[in-house]
């Protein structure tokens, strides 16, 4: 059991990353009941936006100083693409059968990947992403914190706190809750629900950019396909936590991240399951967890039953 603290810490960092992306799925779903399957690509676009800023800056600028500007650049790119997708791809389909925006989202996902593949310099293969230099921090003898994980462990709680305060306390946040609960009645209150929907996409985009920078730092590279599996995992986290619930998205992310880390660490030690452990099987265990949770709690960990959402 001596690996437990390290497993939890690694899982927490991974889970915080999933959670940031899951927020984007859950906010959009909560307000327009659309699974934005292009959200993984919004993450990817944020990564390339951040990388672009890093490439513009002189090499002499240290990474820590460049990071805020990279986040800003990534967020501008992600938010621009996310809100443009809402305006030009999803809004015209708002009253269409639900399959139409879903297929549009999948098409948009492929289109965004191919645009980066075709037009971003040298993006046909992975592009290197800057990483912090130096060894991992040694917290205790057996627990190490990777320098690049520090970023997501700091950024995710801050983002979450800011979002929680915004939704609970601000006038716009209140309007978002009203729109999520009953859009027509929200309009009767004087709320411009189109604007609320744009804000939901924008917040999802900004969080996606933070996640993209975190992923770039962890992996040391980004590529045009990175959004696919990240998006799928984060979508899983959002469903696990209860889709439509922002705290559920973060909780689902953390649960999923820890489950993945634990499966990598422990399953290989279970007699008879040696071949089913290790990193190669972590995705399998993530989805097994999803299936088990949905069997027991179809609404997800923090989700309300559909009847309560009327």
């Amino acid at each position: 059991m001596h690996e437990l603290p390290q497993t939890l810490l690694s899982g927490l960092a991974l889970g915080a990353l999933y959670g940031l992306i899951a927020i984007g799925y859950t906010m959009v779903y909560g307000i327009v009941q659309l699974i934005n399957f292009a959200h993984g690509e919004i993450v990817m676009i944020g990564g390339f936006g951040a990388l672009t800023v890093r490439l513009w800056l002189p090499d002499s600028v240290p990474l820590a100083a460049a990071l805020p500007l990279m986040l800003l650049g990534g967020a501008i790119a992600s938010v621009a693409v996310a809100t443009a997708a809402e305006r030009f791809a999803y809004r015209p389909l708002r009253d269409a059968p639900r399959l139409a925006p879903l297929i549009t989202a999948i098409g948009l996902s492929i289109a965004l990947q191919q645009i980066i593949w075709a037009f971003y310099p040298d993006a046909k293969k992975s592009r290197g992403f800057p990483q912090f230099q130096g060894d991992a921090f040694e917290l205790t003898g057996s627990i190490h914190l990777q320098r690049d994980d520090l970023f997501v462990l700091a950024a995710a709680p801050l983002c979450m706190l800011a979002l929680g305060l915004f939704v609970a306390k601000s006038r716009t946040g209140r309007a978002m809750q009203a729109t999520a609960q009953d859009p027509d009645t929200a309009r009767l209150m004087g709320i411009n629900t189109d604007r609320i929907i744009v804000i939901a996409f924008a917040i999802g985009g900004a969080f996606a950019a933070v996640a993209a920078v975190a992923q770039g730092l962890r992996a040391g590279q980004i590529n045009f396909e990175m959004g696919f599996i990240l998006g799928l995992k984060a979508f899983t986290a959002a469903v696990l936590g209860g889709i439509g619930n922002i705290y559920g998205a973060m909780l689902g992310g953390v649960v999923l991240g820890i489950a993945e880390a634990a499966s990598t660490t422990y399953i290989q030690h279970i007699p008879g399951m040696q071949q089913l452990g290790g990193g190669g099987w972590k995705d399998v265990w993530a989805f097994v967890l999803l299936i088990v949770v949905l069997l027991v709690r179809p609404q997800g960990l923090l989700g309300e039953r559909v009847a309560d959402r009327a």
């Binding site: 006038r171 209140r174 809750q177 929200a186 209150m189 309300e304 009327a310």
Partner: peptide, 19 residues
């Protein structure tokens, strides 16, 4: 009726005065 079920009564009334 279409009240906002997960907001409090006060919050529902405040939304009536949104503008």
């Amino acid at each position: 009726r279409h009240i906002f079920p997960r907001l409090t009564i006060t919050e529902n009334l405040q939304l009536g005065a949104f503008l």
